[in-house]
Design a binder for these strands. Structure first.
Lengths: 200, 200, 200, 200
DNA sequence: AATGAATGAGGTTTCATTCAT
DNA sequence: GATGAATGAAACCTCATTCAT
């Protein structure tokens, strides 16, 4: 029974993602999602409290598992720099592999209601905290500058990566997103200016 | 007559900004904007083709002038690093001075329709190109790394700054935004890692 | 302008009464009322806050004016008994003359939501108070029994008349309602039992 | 089996009364009644044709037994006046003892569909006929006026009592309902005006 | 007999836009 | 140019009822 329930729950979420990717946030009517999922309109409301709940759930399911993968992957790593490379790698690679998801999260869901946006913010927060922790670890390791403002830095890192993904989507995905990882992390670590490590 | 026209045109744009700041994007009905401007609903359509055109115009007027200020300010400067500091300074300071505008651009207008979003993108584009030019200039000056991808870098810089402003708004503007300029530019120039200039 | 406004306001109310009388409370969709009134659905919401407001207004307009007529008519009369006869006469005659209104008020609106029912109660209240005042006057005049409970009595009188009208509607209006006035008032004044006035 | 059947039948009726009393007529969804009764939604439809049938049955069960009590109680009495006092006494006392039932019958069920209302009417009819019989008996006994219209009078009596109960419910049951019996019957028998029995 | 997941029709309300004055 | 009354399409959600198990 629960299997069946989960089955339909997933069907509806899949349908929602597909419909939003195809028709945009404003074209994502419940009736269209239901039809795509092959269920009646009312069935949607057996699994979700309302439309907003459906969209929040979609975001949580998809992004939540992504955030989880970050946590799992970091554990084994050693230096903060490597951790950052892994995070950015997962971030770009995952969204490159799932362009529908990427479109939905970067473009469509940003047009949503304040309530949904705030729910999205809560889902993304752990990811941002994860980034902050890496920065903090780098400072402790003495590989990152001690004068970094960790709270500010996490925003700079997240904002930069987020914008790269968004632009990639807007451009029509004409180039490789995962191909930007190294240059991006390089920027994070070394900045813009010509600098060389001190020769002891 | 044209003077008068312009007069009402401006009144309506002012009213739109005020209403959006007060009631959010979704609360910005044409009738409310008209009332705030002291004109009839139909009058709005004498100056703007439709609601979208009104919002695009609002964005162009406001953000366009901001972008112009960037151009004007940079001309005189010398090094790319200084230019970046000036750009980030204007970016943060202007939005700190006009919190209504900041709220509208960072939060409300992001909830808008695809068409409007794309129009916004076009308005912001020159700003992003400006950033790219600074990067390119830095490379030419030999102060920025020659291996920088200028197109990618402009996104990283813009995305980072944009996220800082958005978070500042969401936080309720509890801290100084302009106080983040130095740390932000520092991050752009030097990156995260402990590095020292080569001693020649 | 106001004339026009009032015009449409009245058109919608008339349409509502007609539709409710024809299709019942549950068949009274806004769209049907609008069509009957010859206006667009949205126009209804220019004159009424929502459907409930429309129905409350209908009740107030119709019953309110009826109640007003009671007040106007009573002023001139002398004895409480006569006043009672006038009230009952108006009550029955008016509803007999306007069978649609009678059907709507006695049958359809009683199936309405708690909120509407309570609004209806408030409209009818002055009528019930009017009846109480007549009873009180009768006591003061020494023509009504001094041991009457005025609050209870007003309910007994109103309830009795109300039930007569309702039954007349349910029966399909097969007999004269105004023909019941004398017998009804007689019952109010003399009760059921055989009694004779004291011979002084 | 029949025993069991009856068992669940009763459970569902009890649940319906409880739910209606608690949540009102419009809050009485089939699923809620089923849950309160501890059965599945579909089970309700094994015992009742549809929701309307359930509600009609509820009314018949509850009000029908009340009406039966009237019949049983009257048989032994002698004068019509006494019979009237007994009827009114049972009417008020029973509903005072069962406020949930009173609320359901006076308020909630009146908001119901035309079909249900008509079914309710049929259930109440024998009660009204009972009243008529008392009136007729009074006339035969020569204690009630011979010129009474029995059909009209039964409405006046029932309507008056019904309104008293309804007002008592609406007032929040702040006073004793059974305390109104004597004054009510007094009104029925003697009317409003000061009259004295003929002294022979 | 009992279950309960699934169905799907149906109605109120908003608001950008128009056009007669 | 200016008005603002009128338009009408469009979508979420509820809940009585069914039927496969």
């Amino acid at each position: 029974m629960t299997g069946r329930k989960r089955e339909k729950y997933g069907l509806i979420l899949d349908a929602a993602e597909k419909v939003i990717a195809r028709s945009g946030y404003h074209g994502a009517q419940v009736s269209r999602i239901a039809k795509e999922a092959g269920v009646a309109d009312g069935t949607v409301y057996l699994y979700f409290k309302n439309k907003e709940d459906l969209l929040v759930s979609l975001f949580r399911e998809r992004l939540g598992s992504l955030v989880q993968r970050f946590h799992d992957s970091i554990r084994e790593t050693h230096t903060a720099g490597e951790a950052l490379r892994i995070v950015c790698g997962i971030h770009f690679t995952m969204l490159e592999k799932h362009p529908d998801l990427a479109h939905v999260t970067q473009i469509e869901l940003r047009q949503s209601s304040p309530k949904l946006r705030s729910a999205i913010g809560l889902t993304v927060k752990p990811y941002i905290v994860l980034i902050e922790n890496i920065v903090r670890k780098g400072i402790e390791e003495n590989t990152f500058r001690a004068d970094l403002d960790t709270k500010l830095t996490r925003l700079l890192l997240f904002g930069a990566m987020d914008q790269v993904v968004t632009s990639w989507i807007i451009s029509g995905r004409k180039y490789s997103l995962s191909g930007q990882v190294d240059k991006t992390v390089d920027f994070f670590l070394r900045g813009l200016t010509v600098q060389e490590r001190k020769i002891r």
